[in-house]
Write a protein that binds this DNA or RNA. Structure first.
Length: 477
RNA sequence: CGGGGUGUAGCGCAGUUCGGUAGCGCACCGCGUUUGGGACGCGGGGGUCGCCGGUUCGAGUCCGGCCGCCCCGACCA
């Protein structure tokens, strides 16, 4: 339950973030360090994210399956970069049923290895390809510094794992799924993202190329909101995934993997939230419309409640909540649901019943500015229209914010200044040394080389050598 | 793993200096009045004071040890 005000977002962003999550009952700290409990309101948001993604996966021919939580330690060791990347953050089971295990079992940090092993059994011929499997599940990475939703020891996600006959096909799949993530982020979450390629230093352990969608949070820091990897034949060779091609010659398959996690809940919170609390995009909000009935006397109540009921029936196609609590005042409810980010509030009192109207109050425009009197005629259509408007305004606002905080540095000093206050889009020669120097000097890393490039050529912002691509430098979560 | 902070009712804290049997606000329960932007009155319930040990007639308070959690730095969806 809400009592007093939240921390001011611009004054103490991390504290604001924590308080919003705890107070809106999205999640809570678990008794184990670095672990969280996703509470029903947070999980409902995640379920809507899952549905939005899952229907896109199905539409592109993918099917769901479930692979085990435990992976033999030796599996991870088969791919050199993979084990090097993940070994510092593995949880390892050494005892089972009171007996010391002959081979330790890793609690999966990701499932490329065990899925690769299974694919080697299942794939014989080019006729078995492509294999397009997705898994919804949880994974464990023993992180040192944790934050609710953004980085916890255990998190929930989906991981897609596909196998293809040709490199071209696999690369297409990698980009198709990156595009799927971008489409979801932009159109359902109203989170503007930059699709791009990761530098070698930032790529997934074991991938040939990694792609990402990067989003700017309300404090201008960057968040990797989803990733898609072209794994080449690295895992095919490690797990001997071979098929007979059209000429009856044995070939290694080409694989991809792509994932999006509960971290995205954090992305939504930090993209749209304001001092009043959460602001949820209508398409994903667990509650799209909250109805607050207003009355003083029993007589008023008996006039208002039937109208509330009738309206609720009319709005069956939306996720509607009627807040009929008697023990708190309407004013309290307004603040409470605003904190919880419900996109649209409908107030109905005796005066409205008399006039045949209701009050719409938009979450994205607080106070008087966001209130309007609306006729009860065609209410469902008006609600649909309003939710659409709010959805669009959230995206526009977030995009404008990102544009206002993205800069084109003219020299290295300029770059150092910019990384203190936003994103820098600069020419980069591609040399890891230049990248490392920036990180050393500014704590900003390369976020991605956007797929959309200005073209032409320039000089590397760090060393001045010729460069053909621009990269985003920014501090990141 | 290093630095900082903290642990007393569900939450936020006071009490620890100087030992004497635990308190405040919010939340919770009951009744009544309230209700168009965070209501109020009256009455009530709830605590092995993080854990273990020591000193003492007596420990939330003093001494020793341990642990948890949060925040800040090196790795990461």
């Amino acid at each position: 339950m809400s009592d007093d005000k939240l921390p001011i977002r611009t004054e103490n962003f991390p504290e604001w973030y924590n308080q919003v999550i705890l107070r809106t009952e999205m999640a809570d700290y678990a008794p184990v360090r670095g672990c969280m409990v996703v509470r029903p309101y947070g999980w409902a948001l995640w379920e809507n994210i899952q549905q939005a993604l899952d229907r896109r996966f199905k539409a592109t021919g993918h099917v769901n399956a479930a692979f085990p939580l435990f992976i033999p330690m030796s599996f991870l060791e088969k791919e050199k970069e993979h084990v090097e990347g993940f070994s510092p953050e593995l949880a390892i089971v050494t005892i089972g049923g009171g007996q010391k295990l002959e081979e330790p079992l890793v609690v999966r940090p990701t499932s490329e290895t065990i899925i690769g092993y299974m694919y080697s059994k299942w794939i014989q011929s080019h006729r078995d390809l492509p294999v397009l499997i997705n898994q919804w599940g949880n994974v464990v990475r023993w992180e040192l510094r944790t934050r609710l939703f953004l980085r916890t020891l255990e998190f929930y996600w989906q991981e897609g794992h596909t196998a293809h006959a040709t490199a071209k096909e696999a690369e297409e799949e990698t980009l198709r799924m990156l595009d799927t993530y971008a489409d979801f982020a932009i159109n359902d979450a109203a989170v503007p993202v930059v699709p791009g390629r990761k530098s070698n230093a930032e790529k997934f352990a074991g991938a040939v190329r990694s792609y990402t969608i990067e989003a700017m949070m309300g404090d201008t820091k960057a968040l990797q909101a989803g990733t898609s990897h072209f794994l080449g034949q690295n895992f095919a060779k490690a797990f001997d995934i071979k098929f007979s091609d059209w000429n009856n010659e044995l070939q290694y398959v080409w694989t991809t993997s792509w994932g999006l996690s509960t971290r995205f809940v954090g992305a939504i919170i930090m993209t749209h939230g304001d001092d009043q609390g959460l602001v949820l995009p209508p398409k994903l909000a667990p509650i799209q419309v909250v109805i607050v009935p207003i009355y003083k006397s029993d007589e008023d109540k008996s006039r208002v409640m039937p109208v509330v009921e009738a309206i609720t029936k009319e709005l069956v196609d939306f996720r509607v909540k009627v807040d009929a609590r008697e023990e708190v005042t309407p004013g309290f409810k307004f603040n409470d649901w605003e904190m919880r980010g419900v996109p649209l509030r409908i107030e109905i009192g005796p005066k409205d019943v008399d006039k045949g109207t209701v009050v719409f109050a938009r979450r994205d425009m607080l106070g008087r500015a966001g209130k309007s009197f609306v006729s009860m005629d065609q209410l469902a259509a008006q609600v649909a229209e309003m939710l659409k408007t709010i959805q669009a305004s959230l995206f526009d606002r977030a995009l404008a914010f990102r544009q206002a905080n993205t800069f084109d540095p003219q020299n290295y000093d300029d770059l150092m200044q910019i990384t203190e206050k936003g994103w820098a889009l600069s020419w980069w020669c591609g040399d890891a040394a230049c990248e490392a120097k920036v990180k050393e000097d500014t704590k900003a890393s390369t976020r991605c080389i956007p797929l959309e490039q200005p073209g032409g050529a320039g000089k590397c912002i760090v060393c001045g050598k010729p460069a053909t691509e621009k990269v985003f430098f920014a501090k990141a979560y």
